[in-house]
Computed example of a mutant assay.
Amino acid sequence: MEQLAQEGKVKERTYGKQNIYFADQAQFAELSEADLKAMDSRISDLSTQVEAVSQGCRQLDAELKELNSSLTTEEMSEILELKAECSGYREHLEKIKSATNHVTPEQKEKVYKERHLYVKEWKKRKRLASDMMGSILEGYPKTKKQFLEEVGVETDEDCKVTMPST
Rank of each mutant, 00 (worst) to 15 (best):
H92F: 07
A52F: 05
E94K: 08
L67K: 07
L31C: 03
E91Q: 11
A62S: 15
R58Q: 13
A84F: 13
D40W: 05
L31A: 12
S87A: 06
K65H: 09
E74A: 13
K83H: 10
G56I: 00
K37Y: 06
S70K: 10
E30R: 02
E81W: 04
M76C: 04
E91S: 14
A26P: 08
K65V: 13
Q49N: 10
I43G: 03
E33T: 08
D61T: 13
A29R: 10
Q55M: 09
S54R: 09
M39F: 07
L82M: 02
T72S: 14
C86D: 09
L36G: 00
E94D: 06
F28M: 10
E94F: 05
E51F: 03
N68T: 14
E63R: 10
Q27L: 05
D40E: 14
E75M: 03
M39S: 05
E75A: 09
A26V: 04
L36M: 10
E30I: 00
Q25I: 10
R90N: 10
H92L: 04
E91L: 10
F28D: 03
D40Q: 11
L60T: 08
Q49E: 13
E91D: 14
I96M: 02
T48A: 15
E51L: 07
E91I: 10
L93Y: 11
L80Y: 12
D40L: 13
E75L: 03
S47D: 04
L46D: 06
Q59I: 02
R58I: 08
A34W: 00
G88K: 13
V53P: 06
M39G: 04
V50M: 04
G88R: 12
R58W: 04
S47C: 00
N68R: 15
V53T: 15
L60D: 14
S32N: 03
R58A: 14
L31P: 01
S32M: 05
L71D: 06
E63H: 09
S54V: 09
S87I: 11
L36P: 01
L60H: 11
L46P: 01
S69N: 15
Q59L: 01
K95E: 08
Q59F: 05
E63N: 09
C57K: 14
N68C: 09
C86E: 11
V50I: 12
Q25N: 15
D35R: 07
R90I: 10
C86Q: 14
Q49K: 13
C57Y: 15
I79K: 04
S70W: 03
E63T: 07
